[in-house]
Amino acid sequence: MSVFEGFKFRKVSSVVHNLDPRVKFFFVLVLFVMAVLFTNFLALLVLFLVPLPFVFVAKVNRQWLRSLRGAALLAIFIFATNFIFGYFYPTSLSGITQPVDTLFEYVVLLERSVAMTLRFVVLISSFSVFFLTTSPDHLGLALQQSHVPYEFCFAFTTAVRFVPVLADEAQTIMDAQKARGLELERGNLFKRVRNYIPILIPLIVNAIRRSLELAESMESRAWGASKKRTNLYELKLKRADYVLVVISVLMLICAVYVWLFVPVPSLTTLLSL
């Protein structure tokens, strides 16, 4: 019961949560495109700051931090590869053609590597804002209204619905086998993997049984009665949604303009002035 608490979705309401998932997704997509356009540290720093108000308005700061922490290892890896590659192949860095040796060149390399890492962080951050503030049923609905086949949307929401159920079940099975003397942490690696068989088999058997019952219940409630089914809920764009669409489009236009015509200075050159 304990370990799996984190999986459970909760209904929360805030301005950000209530935004249309399609619009939110568009916004995230714009951020994504912008992050790909720029390699410059300052520009990416701005991009990193853009979704932060959403995090605080939606009060998902703790979960958001947790997802960033989850990405930390990969971020370090990206930083390291960028730094090492930049060191051995400096031509890939703008403005440096000879081997990196002066302090200035080191700083440029450092800034560049940090920028690339930041780009990754921006992507993770904006996508996690999207998923943290979009309830699964909204997401399913958005998929459906975006003409994704209903079967797929149904499978998606049902999967989300059964995560906590299966998690509880896994815990019960584990308890039942422990009560029969099973010690999961005993033995060498091979033995430890084998220790999980008495847990996996009942889990799978029960999942199959469960899905059969689920199918029976769906059939009994007229699954497939008409080709075009209706939906109790409908996503409608509200004012806040339009505002976000406008903001996103403006952001995109600005970004493209800047990218084409305004050279963004690097932090290093800015400071050395």
Binding site: E169, T172, I173, D175, A176, Q177, K178, A179, R180, G181, L182, E183, I197, P198, I201, P202, V205, N206, R209
Partner: peptide
């Protein structure tokens, strides 16, 4: 004491046999 040790004295029959049969 570990569960495995205590289980020697205390047997626990779970509600649903399908949670243990494998």
């Amino acid at each position: 004491v570990s569960v495995a040790k205590l289980a020697r004295t205390v047997g626990f029959v779970f509600q649903n046999p399908d949670h243990q049969l494998f």
